[in-house]
Design a protein around this nucleic acid. Structure first.
Length: 334
DNA sequence: CCTGACAGCCCGGGAGAAACCA
DNA sequence: TGGTTTCTCCCGGGCTGTCAGG
């Protein structure tokens, strides 16, 4: 059934990408100075999830690396490394300059100094989910590093620029912006067709079934590929020779909640409790929310901390917060 | 009432200095 | 003396109180 599981994984980067020629070309031309050993202006990739931002960034840099003799690059996910320290650490890690600072008690901002002292070949840093970075001033510091080229990735353009101070935003306005739209159904279809050809045995899934998957994916390649992967896995577990319509139908909602669950798993128990209460109620006012939280959790945190958690949940697009002032209502994401 | 910016507190943990011990 | 344990300091990060503002 499955001949190559790798190509069905979300982090797989194909050796050629489809339907993003324009984006790849634009990004390549932005990065062109690197071929002469110079730094390139920052690029800013934004658009909804599953539209290929991360993939195209990595693909383009990889391809450039094959052409350019000397080029360092590092992928940083700012969701995981959301603090200034972690992001810097991760960036330094990309040039193997962290051997002697595996520790915390290094003098303040020695990490940034390190980076300033970097004199190697051009260094490209991909900052994914950059809107999750808690201290955006870091971007300004990074911008001023010689020889460092930034590729920023986020869902919404405004999320990043809103919380950035003026010095940086005036500079970032010159950054090349690339907007990624949802894939059309036929684009998704051809992406899936490739994955099927590379990853599955011939004949296990029909064209009609692929269309069935893409129509459920709403332009999100991550969902489409995830459904394909789960369907193949499920069919394999059930000892089926081919993927049945039933399997696909069952696996669609599972895959969607699986993707959200990945986000939820990264939350602390307190954050999860808040999230659970809000989802169960649909909408809820602050006070009842606090009350219920206190009932549900041993060793509850203070209201102040809950507000921190809630704004984080909102930032992660797990909940919505309506009304800025006393009419505040928390609402589960549709 | 409720929020969000700001600042300060505390905790865990690493590092280097200091103290201790054979 | 050399090796080992303890002390002290510093950092990042989570949490909280305060406070102005809606």
């Amino acid at each position: 059934m499955i001949s190559d599981a790798r190509v069905l994984q979300p982090e797989f980067i194909p050796s050629e990408v489809k339907h993003r020629d324009a984006e790849v070309n634009t990004l390549s031309s932005v990065l062109r100075p690197l071929t002469d050993g110079n730094r390139a202006d920052p690029a800013f990739l934004y658009g909804p999830s599953g539209t290929g931002k991360t993939c195209i960034a990595q693909f383009t840099v990889e391809r450039l690396r094959e052409q350019v003799v000397d080029l360092n690059y590092q992928y940083v996910n700012c969701w995981e490394d959301y603090s200034r320290f972690k992001t810097l650490y991760s960036i330094l890690d990309g040039i193997n300059d962290t051997i002697d600072i595996h520790r915390q008690s290094t003098p303040k901002d020695v990490l940034l100094d390190r980076l300033r002292d970097y004199t190697g070949p051009p260094y490209v840093v991909i900052l994914d989910e950059v809107d999750q970075l808690q201290d955006k001033r870091l971007l300004y510091d990074l911008y001023r590093i010689q020889n460092l080229t930034m590729i920023l990735i986020a869902n919404k353009e405004t999320e990043v620029f809103a919380s950035v101070d003026d010095r940086l935003s005036s500079r970032l306005t010159t950054a090349t912006r690339l907007h990624f739209n949802h894939y059309s159904n036929s684009e998704l279809n051809s992406i899936l067709t490739d994955r099927v050809r590379w990853g599955l045995d011939p004949g296990v899934i029909s064209d009609g079934q692929l269309s069935q998957i893409t129509s459920k994916a709403a332009g999100d390649a991550r969902i489409a590929i995830g459904v394909l992967r789960n369907a193949a896995q499920r069919a394999h577990e059930n000892n089926l020779d081919i993927i049945s319509d039933d399997v696909i139908r069952n696996v669609v909602p599972e895959t969607k909640s699986e993707i959200q669950q990945k986000t939820i798993d990264r939350l602390t128990t307190h954050q999860q409790a808040l999230f659970d209460i809000i989802t169960e109620h649909g909408t809820i006012e602050p006070q009842p929310l606090y009350d219920e939280y206190e009932n549900r959790v041993t060793d509850p945190k203070t209201k102040r901390t809950l507000r921190n958690h809630l704004s984080k949940l909102e930032h992660y697009n797990l909940i919505e917060a309506e009304g800025n002032t006393k009419a505040r209502v928390y609402r589960a994401q549709a």
